[in-house]
Simulated assay, not measured.
Amino acid sequence: MRLSAPVFRLKRRAKLLSRTEGIPLHAALDRLAAEEGFRSWSHLSTKLAEARPARRILDALTPGDLVLLGARPGHGKTLLGLELLCEALGEGWAGLFFTLDYTEADVHRRLVDLGPVAKTADRLILDTSDAICADHVIGRLAQVDGPALAVIDYLQLLDQDRRHPPLGQQVEALSAYARTSGAVIVAISQIDRRFDLAGDGMPGLGDVRLPNPVDLTLFTRTCFLHDGAVRVERTG
């Protein structure tokens, strides 16, 4: 299921349309839904819920997985990471979201965009500390009991503080901890802009933007998004 823009952007357009044309918000939403080929906004929402890949991604994960979730800006990688956490919370997992990019208010707005699937988000452990690095993530994970899923937003920002180990060492530490503890760790990743210039259909490991060397074979699974399509693969 492909939309012309992510849902949160369509909602923003609907709010602007509502204000500029003086029509109710629900009418603006229905108009945009019709432009996307749906009978109404509720029809779009229903179909979107059916098409969401988070459930099948979670079902495919195994304890100890280190997952790379990559896409170019605006293709929904952060929203998918949050949705994956909500699905895990619904299964009784502990869910932790580490972000060096968003504020708490930003994250809560994104959760609203998920709609009913975010009903479990009240149990989400949200960490926006400037100290986020591999050791910080591992320390927080060590404090929870039972199965846990952590999402890091995002991989490249772990490399911005020179007081922390190089990114390659941090990925090695995350891989080792996931493997020994059974936790699942998902690192959201930027994709190099050269991917857009190449015009390829779906990014891959060779398109991951790396400011410094990282052994990407440490990731046991990859999940790439582009234009509404999702590809999940086991590496190695």
Rank of each mutant, 00 (worst) to 15 (best):
D65W: 02
V67W: 00
D65N: 11
P53L: 08
T217C: 07
R123Q: 12
L69F: 09
A173C: 01
V171R: 02
G201H: 11
S40M: 10
A150W: 05
G201I: 05
Q170D: 04
A71N: 10
H164A: 14
V67G: 01
D161N: 15
R31P: 01
L69T: 08
L79D: 13
S18T: 12
A134S: 14
S189H: 06
P53G: 09
F224L: 05
H26F: 11
L16N: 06
D65A: 06
L68G: 02
D59Q: 15
G76R: 08
V7G: 00
L158H: 08
P6Q: 08
L114R: 02
L155C: 09
P73N: 11
T217E: 14
R193P: 08
S4D: 12
A94W: 01
D113Y: 06
V230Y: 05
P165Q: 07
V144L: 10
D113L: 02
A148C: 12
L58D: 04
K47S: 10
H75G: 02
H226L: 09
G146M: 08
K47L: 15
E172M: 10
R72A: 13
V107Y: 02
G206R: 09
E104A: 15
D153N: 14
P24D: 08
L48D: 08
L80H: 05
F97P: 01
R39N: 01
R209N: 05
R9F: 07
V214M: 03
T217Y: 06
D227C: 09
L44E: 05
A148M: 09
L157V: 13
A131V: 07
C223M: 07
L96F: 06
T220N: 00
A34V: 13
L25A: 10
G182I: 00
R163E: 13
L25V: 11
S45Q: 15
D200R: 15
